[in-house]
Design a protein around this nucleic acid. Sequence first.
DNA 1: CACCCTGTGGAGAGCGCTCTCACTCTGTTA
DNA 2: TAACAGAGTGAGAGCGCTCTCCACAGGGTG
Lengths: 348, 348
Amino acid sequence: MSKDLRRAAPTLEDVAKVAGVSRATVSRVINGKRKVAPAVQEVVLEAVAETGYVPNRAARSLVTRRTGTVAVVISGADADPDGELDLSGVFSDPFFGRVVGSLVRTLRPHDVHPVLMFADDEQTRAQVVSYLRFGNADGALLVSTYADDPLPEALIGTGSPIVLFARPSHPIPASYVDLANADGARLAANHLLDRGCRTLGVISGPLDVPSARDRLDGFRDAAARRGHAFVPSVAGSFTFESGETAMTELLAATPDLDGVFVSNDLMAQGAIHVLQEHGRRVPDDVAIVGFDDSPVALQTRPRLTTVRQPVEQMAQEMARMLLEQIDADEPAVRSSIFEPVLVVRDSA
Amino acid sequence: MSKDLRRAAPTLEDVAKVAGVSRATVSRVINGKRKVAPAVQEVVLEAVAETGYVPNRAARSLVTRRTGTVAVVISGADADPDGELDLSGVFSDPFFGRVVGSLVRTLRPHDVHPVLMFADDEQTRAQVVSYLRFGNADGALLVSTYADDPLPEALIGTGSPIVLFARPSHPIPASYVDLANADGARLAANHLLDRGCRTLGVISGPLDVPSARDRLDGFRDAAARRGHAFVPSVAGSFTFESGETAMTELLAATPDLDGVFVSNDLMAQGAIHVLQEHGRRVPDDVAIVGFDDSPVALQTRPRLTTVRQPVEQMAQEMARMLLEQIDADEPAVRSSIFEPVLVVRDSA
DNA sequence: CACCCTGTGGAGAGCGCTCTCACTCTGTTA
DNA sequence: TAACAGAGTGAGAGCGCTCTCCACAGGGTG
């Protein structure tokens, strides 16, 4: 049954016969590559409609060496027995879903299909690399979740176009989109100081991750400019639980804390819980500013004041850059940096 | 540069030359389809290793009519101007991330690659259908988010193997995995009653969605068996916000409520917030049982008692069923129902 | 000793497409 | 009028693979 249906798929030859022209001409009309007489063009288009013709991807791909697919790779550190950042929970941070969703959406009208891949050990990284090396996809969009990920460099080695989300921890010749993280952190610092906070603290991300580093540095920089020579910080790992742990620690070290900047919303949520369990009112006793403006920012009580990262737009730009690189013969390494915005709600 | 690297990819011909055998023999060794003398086999494998040969997917696909990819389709209702269930936010419920993640993981060792697609209007549905009809993927895994989704039926029409997450709202000849939703709801009901709740309420999902319906019915059934002839319910739409709204409504209608069953964790989270804002202590004044055991169950305070849906295992089973169907010549329509488990935490 | 297996390898067609090359048919210029 | 440009079209090769057919060797059987 299924086979019959598939076999029934009309080929170029069929369309050509119906239109009374050659296969080559039909191909030209469909791809719009060369001039075809308007009358002929019309006849061909009618024949296409009549037969319900759709080009066979595999056949086309065989000769053009284009697949019409790109790899969307989420890369995580090798799953340690004791490693906390396991890729299996990666989607519990809505961040990745937002990125992937936006990529899918942007690619769709270009008829480019995203193949989703996870890479979290040597074997799966090798799989991704060989997938690209042998032309199974026209390029890769890579979201890495940890520092010193070897994958970006390995992918460059395949010669395929790639675009990264966020600047890699070591400089490599790859295009990327990123956020002006330090600027975002400055917004947070100034907001906390403007509302009168006197004793600041930071829950950062892992400090070998550039974006986490930049957020901490930016915050400290802005605080220093306003007289706060030192701001204590504790590093988390961007998970809810690590936010709880970090807040507990920060609170123990600095009990008179009255303003905390947290490097992402998920950790901020954990931090708020801990503060409330310690009887601190948010924002009255301690003000909190998060980062990302993810859906969870609306699910905390009080609602989270946070630095918005336009994830969807950034992902869109990633996809665009990749498509551009795929079309270009001479691929250029480019970057695109987005500006964060402070979204004021109730937590600060 | 990139082109040169790609062109350098060795072909079967190259391997055959190195091994001193014919193309056909190399193909046989690689696919293990027919007996090849052990000595020859070894020579070929060495040649493969030496050349770094990897089969060209497009060429293979052209003749086998197999693509080595499956479509993973998330299907949502058309985006109304006033429609609340927009696919763009779909990943803010970790549920979908869990499903997709598990699918990717299960497919990976079989070297089957998932192409992620969203379908949320006539055009994108048609795109998915034609993608399948013309053999661009070997099958489809479909997660539908609303009742009366026309996509499952349309996909059956393509003749491709498909597997659904959850029983469709109208019976159609398609395989699916599902949860014994009513049983899960019964667990919740008995747990609430066992802990002494006297006035129950339910926040359900949209009642045209079978799983939502089953959960409500199961709960009511179990409650009735223990003397609770009627349990008031309000329908939400599985989002955080709808949980807040529904809880507000339920509380207004039934102020002496002391036990609430909520059809998913995200709505339960919203419900808890509303209860707390109304000065009700959870679980002392009102006990709450959620559904899913999603990551958010650990992020509420108190932590959520909830009915676990083994989403990852279910997704794994979906993938397995699809692979099986793809390999089988005579595709059989099958279903696989999982048993829920009550996870007792602090909210009830 | 002829016969026919069975087990193994090679030759070659052909999957559906794109693209180069050559051809025809205009219309234009010397 | 001859020569030529240019535009539109067709013929056919070939992308890398699988798979059907066929050839052949070696060994058992009547």
